[in-house]
């Protein structure tokens, strides 16, 4: 209980220190406000443009969540398929390894060309970016059934599908969660890149527009909204993981500590 209470307190404290440092840098260096506006100024920009920010954030969030859901569903389906079928492994794995070698972010201009400036191109970019880490992490978990449980399945004359559902999937859930953590970190990157490449709405678009007009305080405000969005996504995932039936999922604070599972097929 003490830790639960202390966590928000520590976060607030860290935030406070960061704000003080930020303001101190602005005061001490005397940088013009179109280079680095102080926290107070950004706060005012946040307040004044709340409606504008909200409208663009809604577009970004909708694409982010849709792309996230589509990528997770597709990744999970691919991993299950690969785990179940040796033929699929033979056919799909080389393709996946090749596809992984292509930096998906670099596809953003092509996708925008094909799918236009609307929501579709952003959703597809997010989907593609998170598809690989989710597939890779979950597939890894599925294939790493402990030898003792593999023996059990053989002794019990398990059918492949039942073995998958009853043994491999529950065992792979922690690995899937690692993949989801990566996905939640990558997805905001992806959606912003998509908007930068070509969009008439969204927080990424708003940032570019504000930059063009020298409204640095609005840029920072957009950035703050974006950052809180990412944090909310991450917190929502943690919530989901902890309320799930699988309580033994190993806890990790940093999403980056599981990089090793990224890119292994």
């Amino acid at each position: 209980m003490r830790r639960l209470n202390a966590a928000p307190l520590r976060a607030a404290l860290a935030l406070g220190v960061a704000l003080v440092l930020w303001q101190a840098v602005v005061w001490l260096t005397g940088v013009p406000r179109f280079i680095l506006p102080g926290p107070a100024r950004v706060g005012v920009a946040l307040w004044d443009n709340a409606a504008l920010l909200l409208e663009h954030a809604r577009f970004t969030v909708a694409n982010l969540l849709t792309g996230l859901a589509a990528g997770v569903v597709l990744g999970v389906a691919t991993a299950l398929n690969l785990a179940l079928s040796p033929i699929a492994r033979l056919m799909l794995r080389p393709m996946l390894i090749f596809a992984q070698a292509v930096p998906v972010f670099a596809l953003a201009p092509i996708l925008t060309l094909w799918l236009g400036y609307g929501a579709a191109s952003k959703i597809v970019i997010v989907m593609l970016v998170i598809y690989f880490p989710v597939t890779s992490a979950f597939f890894d978990g599925l294939m790493r059934l402990p030898a003792s449980l593999a023996d059990l399945a053989q002794m019990m004359r398990a059918k492949p599908l039942h073995r998958l559902i009853l043994l491999q999937v529950p065992h792979a859930l922690p690995a899937l969660v690692s993949g989801l953590r990566l996905a939640v970190v990558y997805a905001p990157f992806a959606v912003i890149i998509g908007e930068w490449v070509g969009s008439s709405r969204g927080l990424g678009y708003l940032m570019l527009m504000a930059n063009g007009r020298g409204q640095t305080d609005l840029m920072f405000a957009s950035l703050l909204v974006l950052a809180s969005m990412s944090l909310l996504c991450f917190a929502a995932l943690e919530r989901l993981v902890q309320s799930g039936p699988q309580k033994k999922v190993k806890r990790q604070r940093l999403p980056f500590s599981d990089r090793s599972s990224y890119g292994r097929f």
Partner: peptide, 28 residues
């Protein structure tokens, strides 16, 4: 043949009833 090994090979995510009935469920 049924095998019982040292580790017990229990499923950590399943309750005892589901652990005992895993054979039938694996066979469908």
């Amino acid at each position: 043949v049924a095998l019982m090994a040292q580790g017990g090979q229990l499923l950590p995510w399943a309750d005892l009833v589901r652990n005992v009935t895993i054979g039938a469920r694996l066979r469908g």
